[in-house]
């Protein structure tokens, strides 16, 4: 039974609650619901978290922007080709700081999703992000990015306009900005499409979000030649926030209410807000040089390998 089935059961219980008048019965069901939440909705598997990260009702980047930042003004276009609706960008205020916000936007309905291309950006989207980041650098504004994408869009137009160049350029330039970049994975963090705006000084993840090199379905079909093994792949890939914290890829986990962010979004917005304000306060003490070198050092040291060091043997063996 996965989390969506459990959610349905919980909803059925809640529906029952609304039909009742009797005080005692209501109390009974309430206890039942709390109990069910505590037992069944905790200890999620990796696949449960994948389902939650892709949940239809999950807060999108626009929701987070509207509820976490004040006075947000959206800025459109990459000044070269067009405006990609899969990436929302602009300037907003948070806790006394003015910041540039860039987020990957999913829709909630099918029409919305078609408009923003299921949050799969084209090259112009990444170039818009880069333009806004350069602007932030010019005016010494911190950058906050909200990651929620299945990946960069694989299509004919995207390839012709240089999808890989757009992503590579973003990574290259992000490594040298003297303003802090704070990345928050709010849903799916899919591959290069996520990393292209996610090379942050600090990377945060919502508790039930995922961040991986590939979708579990793709992973299963490439490595095991069977896309139906996605659930097993999700376990093997170490894509949950807890796994990635353990591997030291991300800096902190932002907690979600029981049952996922969409159940009590307000709590999640407040948690994101306080995390960001704390991080912004920390970086406001640092010089641009410190911020830049700190970020470079962080990514320079990522990797898991060994090197046989012949020098170490000197003196031990003649």
């Amino acid at each position: 039974m996965n989390i969506l089935d459990k959610e349905k059961k919980l909803e059925a219980l809640e529906k029952e609650l609304s039909h009742l008048d009797d005080e005692d019965a209501i109390q009974d069901i309430r206890i039942k619901i709390e109990d069910y939440k505590r037992r069944a909705m905790k200890n999620l598997t990796a696949w449960d978290r994948v389902l939650l990260a892709r949940h239809k009702k999950r807060p999108t980047a626009q929701d987070v922007i509207d509820n976490v930042f004040d006075d947000f003004i959206e800025l459109h276009g990459d000044r070269k080709y067009g405006d990609d609706k899969a990436i929302v960008g602009g300037i907003g205020k948070i806790g006394g700081h003015v910041v540039t916000v860039i987020g990957e936007q999913k829709g909630k309905t099918t029409e919305e999703n078609i408009e923003c291309n299921f949050a799969m950006p084209h090259p112009e989207g990444y170039r818009k992000a880069l333009r806004l980041m350069r602007q932030a650098q010019k005016f010494n504004r911190p950058i906050v990015t909200l990651i929620d994408t299945p990946g960069a869009f694989p299509g004919i137009g995207a390839e012709a306009r240089g999808q890989s160049e757009a992503i590579a350029k973003n990574l290259q330039e992000m490594s040298q900005f003297g303003v802090p970049i704070l990345a928050v994975v709010i849903g799916e963090g899919g591959s290069g499409g996520a990393l292209a705006i996610g090379m942050g000084n600090q990377v945060f993840m919502l508790e039930n979000s995922i961040y991986s090199i590939l979708s579990p379905e793709g992973y299963a079909s490439i490595l095991w030649k069977d896309s139906s093994l996605a659930q097993e792949a999700a376990e093997a890939m170490k894509l949950t926030s807890y796994d990635l914290k353990e591997l030291d890829i991300i800096d902190a986990i932002i907690p979600e209410p029981v049952g996922g962010a969409h159940r009590e979004p307000e709590k999640v917005y407040r948690a994101i807000q306080s995390t960001l304000i704390q991080a912004l306060a920390y970086y406001s003490q640092q010089s641009p040089y410190e911020i830049k070198t700190g970020r470079y050092a962080k990514y320079r040291n990522l990797g898991f390998f060994q090197r046989f060091n012949y020098e170490n043997l000197k003196g031990v063996v003649k």
Partner: peptide
């Protein structure tokens, strides 16, 4: 793929080096 998220992070690492 076998090294998962570590492989992904190499993209950022190598691009940063090219910037240097």
């Amino acid at each position: 793929m076998q090294e998962g998220i570590y492989s992904l992070m190499q993209m950022a690492k190598t691009s940063g080096a090219i910037q240097k």
